[in-house]
Measured scan of single mutants.
Amino acid sequence: SEEEEEEWRRAKERGEEIIILGILWKPNDEEAERRIKEALRRV
């Protein structure tokens, strides 16, 4: 969703871990980033 995407962007800017759509994303975690982008597209 729009607000999840916004939340994720803010976490990326701050360089902090975030759990979004049930996926743990850490800074520079390209695999998780790809999965999150896929999940955001499906929503």
Rank of each mutant, 00 (worst) to 15 (best):
L24K: 13
E3P: 14
W8T: 05
R42G: 12
R41I: 11
L21H: 11
E16L: 14
R34F: 07
E4S: 13
E17R: 06
I36P: 00
R35D: 07
V43G: 09
E2D: 12
E30D: 13
A39L: 10
R41C: 14
I18C: 14
E30N: 08
N28I: 00
E33Q: 04
D29Q: 02
K26Y: 07
A39Q: 08
E2N: 14
L21W: 00
K37G: 03
I23T: 01
W8Y: 10
K26S: 11
I20M: 04
E4I: 15
V43K: 14
G22K: 00
G15I: 05
G15L: 06
E3H: 14
P27W: 01
R41H: 12
E13V: 09
I18Q: 04
L24W: 02
R14A: 13
I20K: 01
K12T: 09
E17N: 10
E6G: 01
E33R: 04
A39I: 09
E16G: 06
R35S: 10
K26L: 08
E30T: 09
L21E: 06
L21F: 06
E13F: 04
E38L: 00
K26A: 11
E4R: 10
E7I: 10
E33H: 03
L40V: 08
I20F: 14
L40W: 02
I23R: 00
L24E: 07
E30H: 10
G22N: 01
G22W: 03
I20N: 00
G22P: 00
E16W: 07
D29N: 02
E16H: 08
E17I: 10
I20H: 02
E30S: 09
A39T: 04
S1Y: 15
I36Q: 00
E30F: 12
E30C: 10
E16I: 13
R35N: 10
R10L: 07
R10P: 05
R42A: 14
N28V: 01
E17G: 05
K12G: 05
E2C: 15
E5A: 03
R14Q: 10
E31Y: 05
I18W: 05
N28E: 11
R14K: 13
P27K: 00
W25S: 01
E3D: 15
N28D: 13
N28W: 10
G15W: 08
K12R: 11
R42Q: 14
L21A: 09
A39G: 08
E7K: 15
P27T: 01
E33G: 06
E38S: 03
L24S: 09
I36D: 03
R9C: 12
R14P: 03
E4W: 15
V43W: 11
K12N: 05
L24Q: 08
I36W: 03
N28F: 13
E31A: 09
E38Q: 06
R9H: 13
E16N: 08
L24T: 08
I19F: 10
S1C: 15
K26E: 05
P27Q: 00
E16R: 07
A11F: 06
E17L: 09
S1W: 15
K37D: 12
W25V: 03
I23Y: 00
W8E: 05
A39W: 03
R9T: 11
I36N: 00
R34T: 09
S1D: 11
L21I: 06
V43E: 13
A32H: 02
W25A: 03
I36M: 05
I18V: 13
D29A: 04
G15T: 02
I36A: 02
I20D: 00
E13P: 00
E33F: 02
W8F: 15
K12S: 07
E2S: 15
V43L: 15
E2Q: 14
E3M: 14
E4T: 13
S1N: 11
K12Y: 12
L40M: 09
R14M: 10
R34K: 12
E30V: 11
I19D: 02
G15P: 02
E13W: 02
E7W: 15
D29E: 02
R35I: 07
R9V: 12
E3S: 15
E6I: 04
W8I: 13
E31Q: 08
K12M: 15
E17K: 09
R34C: 14
E4G: 10
E2V: 14
E17M: 11
E3K: 15
E5L: 09
L40H: 07
E5W: 10
L21S: 04
A11I: 15
I23S: 01
E7Q: 14
K12Q: 11
K26T: 13
I19K: 06
A39P: 00
R34E: 12
R35F: 04
